[in-house]
Design a protein around this nucleic acid. Structure first.
Lengths: 195, 195
DNA sequence: TATATTAACTAACATTTGTTAGTTTTGAAT
DNA sequence: ATTCAAAACTAACAAATGTTAGTTAATATA
């Protein structure tokens, strides 16, 4: 079969519907029959397209993890200032968490239901990403564009601060994405205090 | 039986062990038999102390929600400046998320498995809390101690930024809690950018 | 049209799940 | 020592779960 890019494969549809359910109810509380009903098919028919329930989760986690990884590699390769790099990375996180589907919620909250060896692979990939991010923060501290602080705390606080978007934003679409971006970035760079 | 405060009731033990498991594996993936094994008892014996699995979750969510609510009421009643109030509230959040048991994780991540009417009650209580917090932020914007920004974005970003502690901190106990507090508060008030 | 592959279906499976029933053990108060 | 309630136990349940087997319908290729 020729795969055109306009038409989604059934596998993709299954993964997307599953992701929506995983975000709503969590991985464990979502049954194959739930997913099948959303797709419009019997539960057993899902297995013509996917190998197992866990493979669906795996595909979700790694597809988004790969997106983050490749973005990071692009940004690392530039000779932007540390602050410019961080700003760009935060843009990526905001965009993915605010806009992109339920994938972000699922990757962030349900990865722990992966079994070995996928679980370790996922954590390795995440650790690599975090280390790259921390190097950028350290470079910013070194050239004194950032205040002297624990880079790990700074990283986790920044990344964590964006996570609420994945739960809240799709219910509050009235906010403009660009103003959202600017508000959050300004908050993280300059804080909330006046002067 | 006389309830002394030094000795935990079996019900409390069950709830604590359950909370640990709910944080590790999630509510749905935790079975009554898992909990029973941790308590050192058969699954059926749990029902001499608790009414249902969901009641355990309910107790966890509301006990911590009540802690937040009463802290908020204390702080609202003072005549501190908005920034002082916000700082104090953030201290509370940091302390609870970093120190206090698995309750925080469970309340934050597993409340959606509550069924009605508990689910709505919980959400009502949370909304009330958030509205009180937002009022404080608005007061700070009004007296120009805070920069002019969307109070909702500021609130969610700040509260969300602290959540990583519940997942990460108990694995990284070497950090001092006080320095952790100060770093995060400074980051949120003044940002990461130098000058 | 004939053929071969893809993907749907029904039926059933072996486990696992939360929970109840009924019984025995424990331990404190009389 | 006897009593009685609290709390443990064993056994079992009905429902739900992920998945497989076997079969039929749909669709693309020859």
């Amino acid at each position: 079969m020729i795969k055109t890019e306009t038409k989604k494969t059934k596998k993709q549809i299954i993964i997307e519907e599953a992701a929506t359910l995983f975000r709503e109810k969590g991985y464990s509380a979502t049954t194959m029959r739930d997913i099948a009903a959303k797709v419009g098919v019997e539960a057993a028919s899902l297995y013509n397209h996917i190998k197992s329930k866990e493979q669906i989760l795996s595909k979700i986690c790694f597809s988004l993890a790969d997106t983050y990884t490749s973005k990071m590699n692009l940004i690392v390769a530039t000779d932007d200032t540390p602050i410019a790099k961080i700003t760009e990375l935060l843009f990526v996180h905001i965009e993915i968490n605010a806009m992109s589907s339920p994938l972000a919620s699922v990757m962030n909250d349900e990865w722990r239901h992966l079994t070995e060896p996928e679980r370790s692979e996922f954590l390795d990939q995440r650790r690599t990403y975090e280390n790259q991010f921390i190097s950028i923060i350290k470079a910013g501290i070194a050239d004194e564009s950032l205040i002297d602080m624990d880079p790990k705390i700074a990283l986790y606080t920044m990344l964590s601060s964006i996570r609420w978007l994945q739960h809240w934003y799709h219910a509050n679409r009235e906010m403009e994405v660009d103003s959202l971006k600017n508000t959050i970035i300004s908050l993280l760079l300059k804080g909330i205090q006046n002067k």
